[in-house]
Design a protein around this nucleic acid. Structure first.
Length: 553
RNA sequence: GUCCCCGUAGCUCAGCAGGAUAGAGCGCGAGAUUCCUAAUCUCGAGGUCGGCGGUUCAAAUCCGCCCGGGGACACCA
């Protein structure tokens, strides 16, 4: 919406100052921070001041008359050092409300999914244990960012990379096998760096119950360990899927690291790099010249013992993604992988993709707080609160919302007490209550007046003359642009801010005005029409975040 | 040592591809309910935007240096 208006402003200004064309990208048209500065504000005059060698204020004065001719603007003011504040006409707001109600919970979403194909890879936890809070945050952020890409017109594939090769799985097998043996021989040694969580014992007990004979009959210990590993991996993967479902997160692609090796994709990718002259041997190992593409140094892909490094697998994995032809890809990673990005980016650049083809979103630590105290977790000792336990304790909506309150690249303190609180202090309840309140008003309307706002109806928006109503409509009109901005800047946490503000403006309105005035039916309908638009906007935001629009609280 | 992130109200943090008097929530103080859900709302106190320079009509935002906190720098995964 802002884009359309920006075009109108530009073409109007262009008649007077053709130079404005070159400044197009720098010109801003946005919601001013204070209400008295109008519905939209633009900085054109500041930008034109330099080439015209005039003061911004003068330029603004000269632009004012041309903008006054644009029919969408009811008033044009010059303020400050040269800001141009624009007030939108009633007719414009009528269109906004009509559009919201027509588009329902997809308000402002791109109609055509023709911007391209995107791959978002996230969670990608080792199938060696239950998901922890960091994974949960990554799951929510990755999923919501995917929703945002869809909102702005991309087709998105959500992918989970299963690290089912290598030492971690081996260790998993050893751990389960040891627990299995301990059932009969309590002194059977447990591997020093094994997984100590109780879930390992559970898996062992399960195996003992159903596969005891089979495992004990295996002569080769390795074989038994592999069997345990495979079984445990499958079981844990199933559990991971369930945990993700609890958060409302589902994947399109489950990509197995092991298949990458067994299908020869690693050789294929390395061959590709070799043909480009980017591979060489040194000190008995095979290296890739990542330093040519911005990495600090070259990296080993085949160790001197002949085995592949983890990096080799990742090269192959990304070569595969490259060949799938995405317009760009996004990796959601734990922030501890920060230092790993330059080398991966380097090798991907070597494939010959554009600079921003591979993007990364880092997820920082989540710390849990209860009764004002941090709950310390130790994975090594097997003492930690799982994602599932947290969801069971505070509920899915709270978990999702809290994970989205901060930029994913900053540490997050998750306050369990706050998440459980049923009051204004809890932002989840605050925003959900806004939605429930509107539903409640609608029920009451039908009850009292017989008029059912749930059904389609029209209203005379021009009757909405209160300041609070204009403020609300103004904010509603800017929401698609705000969502788009969140999508493009890869900042899904902005959704909670947008939602909170909308809820806040609604609560204010609710507390200061009556909607069910029987003496003026036209005004009542106009107000209910506005509420309906607010509700659809809330539903749009809830849908993007994956939060339930509760109808009663 | 090299590189990255962070430093904004008592606390937790927004804002940072420059724009108007730096925001929110919590906490603290004072209020609002004969009326559609008070799970709400209103008002108030509270700031050298870590420090010093620079660029600019304009700097919390961009650049440089410094101070403080965290992290990354494997023939690990």
């Amino acid at each position: 919406m802002k884009e359309e208006l920006k075009e109108k402003i530009l073409s109007a200004v262009e008649k007077k100052f053709p130079q404005v064309k070159e400044l197009k990208d720098k010109i801003k048209v946005e919601l001013p921070k204070e209400d008295r500065f109008g519905d939209l504000a633009t900085n054109v005059a500041f930008l034109l001041a330099k080439p015209l060698r005039k003061k911004p204020l003068e330029v603004a004065q000269e632009i004012k008359p041309v903008l006054q001719e644009v029919k969408e603007f009811s008033k044009v003011e010059v303020a400050g050092a040269g800001f141009i504040n624009l007030f939108l006409s009633e007719d414009y707001y009528r269109q906004v409300l009509e559009r919201i109600i027509a588009e329902r919970d997809r308000y402002g979403e791109a109609k055509e999914k023709n911007r391209g194909r995107v791959n978002v890879e996230f969670v990608s936890a080792n199938p060696t244990g239950p998901l922890h809070l960091g994974h949960g945050r990554g799951a929510v952020v990755g999923n919501v960012q995917s929703n945002l890409y869809e909102y702005i017109g991309y087709t998105v594939e959500r992918e989970f990379y299963i690290n089912d090769a290598g030492n971690q799985i081996k260790k998993l097998g050893e751990s389960v096998y040891a627990r299995f043996r301990q059932i009969e021989e309590p002194d059977y040694p447990f591997p020093e760096d094994g997984y100590k969580g109780d879930y390992i014992k559970e898996i062992a007990r399960h195996l003992y119950k159903y596969e005891r004979e089979k495992i004990l009959s295996m002569v080769d210990r390795e074989q038994a360990v592999d069997f345990c590993a495979e079984f445990a991996k499958e079981m844990l993967l199933e559990r991971i899927k369930e945990d993700l479902k609890l958060l409302g997160v589902e994947f399109d692609i489950w990509f197995s690291e092991r298949k990458l090796y067994s299908s020869g994709k690693v050789e294929e990718a390395l061959q590709f790099l070799k043909e480009k002259g980017l591979v060489y041997e040194k000190e008995g190992a095979v290296w890739v010249k990542t330093s040519l593409y911005g990495d600090d140094k070259d990296r080993v892909v085949i160790k001197s013992d002949g085995s592949y490094t983890y990096f080799a697998g990742d090269i192959a994995y990304h070569y595969d993604k490259f060949k799938r032809g995405y317009d760009f890809i996004v990796n959601v990673w734990g922030a501890d992988h920060h230092g790993y990005f330059p080398r991966l980016k380097a090798v991907v650049m070597a494939f010959g993709v554009p600079e921003d083809w591979i993007r990364v979103i880092f997820i920082q630590l989540v710390k849990l707080f209860k009764n004002g105290q941090e709950i310390k977790m130790s994975k090594r000792a097997g003492k930690f609160i799982t994602l599932r336990e947290l969801v069971e304790e505070v509920g899915r909506d709270a978990v999702v919302y809290f994970f989205l309150t901060k930029d994913s690249n900053t540490h997050l303190n998750f306050d369990i007490d706050l998440a459980l609180e049923k009051s204004a202090e809890n932002p989840v309840y605050y925003v959900q209550y806004a939605h429930a309140r509107i539903c409640s008003v609608f029920r009451e309307a039908k009850e009292r007046t017989g008029f059912d706002p749930e059904k389609d109806f029209t209203a005379d928006v021009s009757l909405l003359k209160e300041e609070a109503e204009r403020v609300l409509m103004k904010y509603l009109s800017s929401i698609p642009d705000l969502i788009r901005e969140a999508a493009e800047k890869q900042q899904p946490h902005k959704l909670t801010q947008i939602t909170y503000r909308l809820a806040s403006e609604f609560h204010y309105y609710y507390n200061h005005f009556k909607f069910l005035t029987t003496d003026d039916e036209r005004l009542m309908k106009a107000r209910l029409y506005l509420l309906k638009a607010v509700r659809e906007a809330l539903r749009t935001l809830f849908r993007l975040m994956g939060i339930t629009p509760v109808e009663r609280m």
